[in-house]
């Protein structure tokens, strides 16, 4: 049996909100260590890897491994019915045909209970070995989100160029072009505002702006985003959870 209680529904609300526009069907794998998901978008360009460790829950138990096949839009409809500050408990039997979601208001005696039918989802699984990266950028997630939104107004592609101490986001469109340069910066008082660049080799990669604009839906989850890049390889965008992560692997674009 699975029983996982979040102190606040807000965490799962943000996670589902970040995923639902990229993937429609997901298997949520529940083990004694927590809940994990690997899901790929229909175009097979963007992969989501989610890990909500047991430590993200106030109470967590999962006696046997359980797979919950969930339709994200349906899950989102139910999740939206709960308040962000509600306690949220996920309950499923050992061989479940439904996931129960219980929202409890902390101030009042109000309990809302929902049942979501499970689906049998046949998904293939991509084997991602430990990747080596040439460059790692830690920067404020809100700043990264603004850059992705701004650059998408110009072009469907966004070029990321990293040299010693700066990251250049470059966009070349039909009616014009634009770029934003971010430099390493340490804010001792507000560490979440800092930009850290770790570079082994210079990077020049191009990504689809559409996918980046799906990734930035994770911005409410974490004040910083970590971007890991390697020449001619998929990039990794990571948002840390209190205990766990939401990662996106994005395949690059290449010259014709």
């Amino acid at each position: 049996m699975l029983e996982g209680k979040f102190d606040e529904a807000s965490l799962l609300k943000k996670v589902i909100d970040a995923m639902k526009d990229s993937v429609k069907l997901c298997n949520f794998n529940c083990t004694e260590n927590g809940i994990s998901v690997q899901a790929i978008d229909d175009s097979r360009v963007l992969l989501i890897s989610l890990l909500i460790e047991a430590g993200s829950f106030e109470d967590y138990r999962c006696d046997r491994n359980i797979v919950l096949g969930l339709e994200m839009e349906s899950l989102n409809k139910i999740i939206k019915n709960g308040n962000a500050s509600d306690m949220l408990t996920l309950v499923a039997e050992d061989s479940p045909d439904a996931l129960n979601l219980i929202f409890e208001d902390k101030r009042r005696d109000r309990i809302a209970e929902y049942s979501l039918k499970l689906m049998d989802i046949d998904q293939d699984f991509l084997k991602i070995e430990d990747m080596k990266f040439d460059a790692v950028v830690n920067m404020p997630s809100a700043e990264f989100a603004k850059i992705c939104r701004d650059m998408k107004t110009l072009s469907e592609s966004l070029q990321i160029i990293i040299t010693k101490d700066s990251v250049k986001f470059n966009s070349e469109g039909d009616f014009g072009s634009g770029s934003v340069v971010i430099k390493s910066f340490t804010d001792l008082e507000k560490t979440e505002e800092s930009v850290r660049i770790t570079l082994e080799k210079p990077i020049n990669l191009t990504f689809g702006a559409k996918y980046l604009n799906d990734i930035i839906k994770s911005t409410p989850l974490a004040s910083q985003v970590t971007i890991k890049l390697c020449d001619k390889q998929p990039a990794l965008f990571e948002y840390q959870l209190p205990s766990g992560y939401l990662r996106f692997y994005l395949a690059p674009k290449f010259e014709d």
Partner: peptide
């Protein structure tokens, strides 16, 4: 503006 690659080109399917 460039050819979009897919993740299957980089990661094997299990």
């Amino acid at each position: 503006d460039g050819l979009q690659s897919t993740l299957g080109e980089f990661f094997p399917t299990e």
